[in-house]
Write a protein that binds this DNA or RNA. Structure first.
Lengths: 248, 248
DNA sequence: CAGTGGTCTAGACCACTAG
DNA sequence: TAGTGGTCTAGACCACTGA
């Protein structure tokens, strides 16, 4: 146990759980507690500080949310490993190519690839389709070193994109197929970036806690004559993703 | 009280606090509970459900973090107003002009404007300055309808930017002054977008809870001959901000 | 098996809000 | 002053981990 003495002030206006989390926060950022090290168990901490277990849990919960510690049931609570080891920097704005993450192996999983007959009018509107048109839907997940970075769903008009159903998108890119096999060259795209909180399903897919922030990206890609050929929605783990772009 | 009956299953593997928050979550998204409406107080909810107050607090805490409810001490917990009423859409990538938020009045506050003598080597490095160079530092806060949207700090080399100390940046833009008074035209900029969690100070400034996600933007702006003239760091409330840009 | 975290209870006291 | 949320306690039981 390398943790420093913790002194709490019962007469302070600062709640005990906050005093405790601040204290541990300091010890982590100062390097007194090092990545991978185990924190005192709730019971140990109880005897170290004299406060009840609920308060200790509250402090640990705060540190978890701040990303400073990681808890494993039955094992303990540990100082988080710093994940500065790699970032996934995506280039926006100048090309459709994503910058490779420092020579790491990037893998793509196809979660779903299908034609749908009826669908959300919002999506049809973005693709300038009418009520009875069919849509091709592709959901993919991209990982690096087994860490799930982001997943996204592309929607394309079935009328001109049906051959996509035969492709293996673990190996080829969508834009490559569109250009080489369907003669649809993407000339322009509009994109929106915002932040949303992970609901249960998205948290499952990316293997993160519920309510963690995600980048939410929407894009509409156009070919010649301003014809929209792809609308996508993507969700990115904000712990690893950073966007880069250049202006003018 | 318009809340529907809440039934919890004591034998389920799903924790009671989760069952409760899921139930209320549903009632809010289905419109049974409407924005502005008050939720049962902890004591009322205790008699409605039979669970202890800690569990109810836990459920309410989850709903707060999800942005579905707002709690005011001494008053109660209320369904959050949907803030779709306005968004602040910033245009990236094609110009330095920010898109005006749907005709709302935008105000700028200058938090700090000063010359600093010694400073962070990281910032000097980005501005290609040497150890003894001075820096001009400007921190501004931008609000719409009294809602704090974002704040940012610009760093500029004092050697060429000293006259900035005399300007009133509540009324004029930095780039305007750089171009018109100092003959420094910005030709190019590099920008990074990531997400960080608000620490105590940033949460104070933007009037949001600690650990809420923020857009963190870094930018280096260059004039001719690739000379960096401004480095800035900005923090944006993700509840109201959305970035837009166009490609190719 | 012992040690860990996760869930839950019943009840106490305090701080804030509003009539 | 009554009602609200915020803090805290002591103790119980369960689920998971690893020796």
């Amino acid at each position: 146990m390398t943790i420093d003495k913790i002194s709490l002030n019962r007469f302070s206006t600062i709640p005990l759980h906050k005093q405790l989390s601040n204290n541990i926060h300091d010890q982590i950022t100062r390097g007194i507690l090092k990545p991978g090290e185990i924190l005192p168990s709730v019971i140990e901490m109880k005897s170290l500080t004299g406060v009840s277990s609920v308060v200790i849990r509250q402090a640990y919960e705060y540190l978890r949310r701040a990303g400073l510690v990681v808890t494993q049931q039955g094992k303990g609570t540990f100082v988080a490993e710093s994940k500065q080891s790699f970032e996934f920097i995506q280039k926006l704005g100048s090309s459709f190519e994503e910058a490779k993450a420092k020579r790491e192996k990037v893998t793509t999983t196809v979660i779903e690839l299908k034609e749908v007959f009826e669908f959300n009018t919002n999506i049809k509107h973005k693709l300038k389709l009418s009520k009875n048109d069919h849509i091709i839907m592709i959901t993919r997940l991209r990982s690096i070193r087994n860490i799930k970075m982001f997943f996204w769903t592309s929607y394309l008009p079935a009328s001109i994109c049906k051959p996509l159903l035969e492709e293996d998108f673990t190996k080829v890119s969508l834009y490559q197929v569109l250009e080489e096999k369907l003669n649809l060259k993407i000339l322009r795209a509009e994109r929106f970036v915002e932040v949303v909180k992970a609901d249960f399903q998205k948290a499952e897919i990316l293997n993160i806690p519920e309510l963690e922030p995600l980048f939410f990206i929407e894009s509409i890609a156009y070919t010649k004559d301003n014809l929209p050929v792809e609308y996508y929605q993507g969700w990115y783990d904000t712990n690893y993703t950073k966007f880069y772009f250049e202006i003018k």
